[in-house]
């Protein structure tokens, strides 16, 4: 088990490799479909994302009616591949060093990870409670007009568990598993014919 502690740097993420199990401690910014489209269209980010990690997540957030404080009730990853058309550009233009999501991403993102020094971390899809427990505070919210799940939530996390599935060296576990399973499929459907 490796650890990655805030403040993050490009050098830190370049030391990570596919298959590494990592606990992240520090700051994360959620951002999913609307945020990526918004940044891709050239709009300025409401927060400086340089050397930050973006988390593909639409959390369930409740606001305490008395204190006005936010509390994250559930916060697992959402499917990342939808951001494939935009992610490379967000990595390039905003200098993010990590992306957390699920299901992996494609060749454009992999290339950007290699070129600009970024890593794709896979969180466990559906594990919204385990992951919400590792969120220690909600420090801000931006672009709330996109609706609660689509806003940028600034979070502080402790020992947030992820697996590196795409590294800054051009390796993708998703490509490896796809290749293996496609070869197996050929074997399997060759039978019974």
């Amino acid at each position: 088990m490796k650890t990655l502690t805030y403040p993050f740097t490009q050098a830190m993420v370049r030391e990570l490799h596919v298959g590494d199990m990592v606990n992240i401690t520090g700051k994360l910014f959620t951002g999913r479909d609307s945020v990526h489209k918004y940044l891709h269209e050239g709009n300025p980010s409401p927060v400086n994302l340089r050397n930050q990690i973006i988390y593909h997540c639409g959390p369930v957030v409740l606001k305490d009616k008395k204190t006005g404080k936010y509390r994250v009730v559930a916060a697992g990853p959402t499917t990342s591949i939808r951001e494939e058309p935009f992610q490379w550009q967000v990595i390039r233009d905003h200098g993010i060093v990590g992306v957390i999501g699920k299901g992996g991403m494609g060749p454009k993102t992999l290339k950007a990870c290699q070129e600009y020094g970024c890593v794709y971390f896979h969180a466990i899809g559906g594990a919204a409670q385990v992951l919400a427990e590792r969120i220690k505070s909600v420090d801000g919210v931006y672009l709330e007009q996109f609706g609660s799940p689509e806003a940028i939530w600034e979070l502080t996390v402790e020992d947030f568990p992820v697996v590196v599935t795409m590294d800054a060296h051009g390796n993708s576990l998703h490509q490896q598993v796809l290749d293996t399973s496609q070869a197996k499929l050929k074997e399997l459907i060759g039978q019974g014919h």
């Binding site: 997540c57 639409g58 369930v60 009730v73 899809g125 559906g126 919204a128 409670q129 919400a132």
Partner: peptide, 10 residues
């Protein structure tokens, strides 16, 4: 235990 969503995408 917490009576909260298993997954945030309900």
């Amino acid at each position: 235990k917490k009576s909260q969503p298993l997954c945030q995408d309900t």
